[in-house]
Amino acid sequence: MEWLVATAIGVCAGSGIFLMLGRRTFDLVLGFGLLSHAVNCFIFVMGRLIPGAAPILSPAATVHADPLPQALVLTAIVIGFAMQALVLVLAMTAFGAHAEDDVDVTDKDP
């Protein structure tokens, strides 16, 4: 089980990095999305894999998963969305200003 989770996170992170290292703007957006998924999952599993023990207190439940990584990841998911939207809009405006699909386009270029 542990290896399955680990390799899935590794593949997502690696794919995300690979896409982000490219030159195309949309690749950057996609890569950012994949890397966000990988990082969120990475932080989440720092609380270990405990099935069926949601951190919701009740007299019946005795075992609980670690709530702290969950709280951290919850806000990270929402912020990740905002950042992805920001990168996307940057890509849109860069294309609007320069008509090129290059993350390194500068104002010097026509």
Binding site: F44, V45, L49, I50, P51, G52, A53, A54, P55, I56, H64, A65, Q70, V73, L74, I77
Partner: peptide, 8 residues
């Protein structure tokens, strides 16, 4: 959902 994080 499986690993006890319904909020997430």
């Amino acid at each position: 959902a499986h690993f006890s994080a319904p909020d997430l």
